[in-house]
Amino acid sequence: MVSSESVNTYLDELAQQRRQSPHTVSNYRRDLRVLCSLIGELPGACTIDAVETHHIRRFIAQLHARGLGGRSLARMLSAWRGFYRWLGLHGEMTANPIEGVRAPKSPKALPKVLSPDEANRLLDSSSDEVLEIRDQAMFELFYSSGLRLAELAALDVSSLEDIQAGEVRVLGKRSKLRLVPVGSKARAAVVAWAQRRCEVAGTEQSALFVGQRGGRIHPRVIEERLKQRALAQGLPTSVHPHMLRHSFASHVLQSSGDLRAVQEMLGHASIASTQIYTHLDFQHLARVYDSAHPRAKRK
């Protein structure tokens, strides 16, 4: 019989052997908890290893009726499918009830991005306060190089030399190393922070960006500081780190038209993941057309 110990062992393997990010492991834990809860609602003493495909289809229908969208359900099915495959490899299952089950499709939402003017307003800030200098360096680096939140939080002081030379090495998803250019404003902001970092950083702390107590800064703190900065600068929308990554990709694509280069800088395994920014680029072109073409203007 499959027990909760199997779930914990699987999650430990994801974290330690497959080097999945803490965020991914946390999502998998939550999704498997949902699965166990749904199984517990079935009549009789049904267990994980007794679940069949018709049960999974019922679960998905129930979750969809509760308001979960297609993308959330697809992610959940992926987590369940991976767990059942792992059980099969360890001889605890003979069939995977998730195989063949697909989530309902939902409209593909385009990522929200800042306009170039909004990005400039967000980053046009000056302060002598040490944590504001740190924030400026982090936000400039997000927008300059399109880093993920976990990638930026994981940077060490050893990356300073590369950043000053105009590039940053980050370890992305699935431990994939990539090299990304760093713009002049981001370089200057990081150097300014490096000069003041010793005022906050703990002894022998290796993290480039540290929190108020001197340890490596927590991703949640970065998110909250960015949100506060956006409000202070009067931006009309809630800004999060991934929005700066989206803005980076969209603005570079608008200027260069080089989809492959954007793919490399973002660290996307498939160009299909990058192609969504072509739709954003088209929206930008459409707005330019509507405002400029003499036969497109409304009376």
Rank of each mutant, 00 (worst) to 15 (best):
L171S: 08
L160M: 12
R18E: 11
G44L: 05
P294H: 11
S206F: 01
A154Q: 07
R134Y: 05
L114W: 01
F209I: 00
A45T: 08
G166R: 15
S159W: 04
V239F: 02
I276K: 04
M138I: 15
L235G: 06
S6R: 04
G172E: 10
V157R: 06
Q283N: 14
V170C: 14
Q228Y: 11
S175R: 15
D162Q: 13
Y289E: 06
A137L: 08
F209N: 00
F282H: 12
Y84K: 06
L285N: 02
E92Y: 07
V170N: 03
S21K: 10
T9D: 14
E140R: 09
G214F: 04
E52F: 01
Q205S: 01
L87E: 02
R169G: 09
R29F: 02
T203H: 11
S144F: 04
V239Y: 00
K108V: 01
L226G: 11
S159K: 02
R85T: 13
S72Q: 04
A189Q: 00
N27Q: 14
R298P: 01
I276A: 01
S115H: 00
A194F: 08
S158C: 07
F83I: 07
V190M: 05
R66K: 15
H242N: 10
S106C: 09
G82M: 07
I163Q: 01
S255Q: 15
G183L: 00
R295H: 13
R75W: 03
L73R: 07
S3N: 03
D128M: 07
H55M: 08
P116E: 07
L244V: 03
G267Y: 05
R187W: 00
V221S: 14
L155I: 03
H23R: 05
A109G: 15
L179T: 13
T53D: 04
H251M: 05
R85Y: 06
R57L: 11
S4D: 13
A232F: 08
D117C: 02
S106A: 14
D290Q: 14
S256Q: 10
G91L: 10
A74F: 10
R19T: 08
L77H: 03
E129Y: 09
A15V: 07
W86T: 06
A192W: 04
A207L: 01
M1E: 09
R287M: 08
E132L: 14
T53Y: 02
A119T: 04
T9P: 06
V252H: 06
G257P: 04
A261W: 00
P22S: 04
E224M: 14
F139A: 09
K176M: 12
P219M: 12
P219I: 05
R66F: 11
G166N: 12
L149P: 04
P116V: 02
I48T: 14
G214H: 00
G100L: 10
S106M: 02
A296W: 11
R295L: 13
L147C: 13
S159T: 09
R260G: 00
S175H: 13
A286Y: 02
E13Y: 14
G100N: 09
P97W: 08
V34E: 15
L14M: 13
I271D: 02
H240G: 05
L171I: 15
F248P: 00
H268I: 08
Q17I: 10
R102Y: 10
S78R: 05
Y143C: 02
R57E: 12
A137C: 12
G234Q: 12
Q17H: 14
D281T: 03
E223P: 01
A188H: 09
H279T: 00
E118A: 15
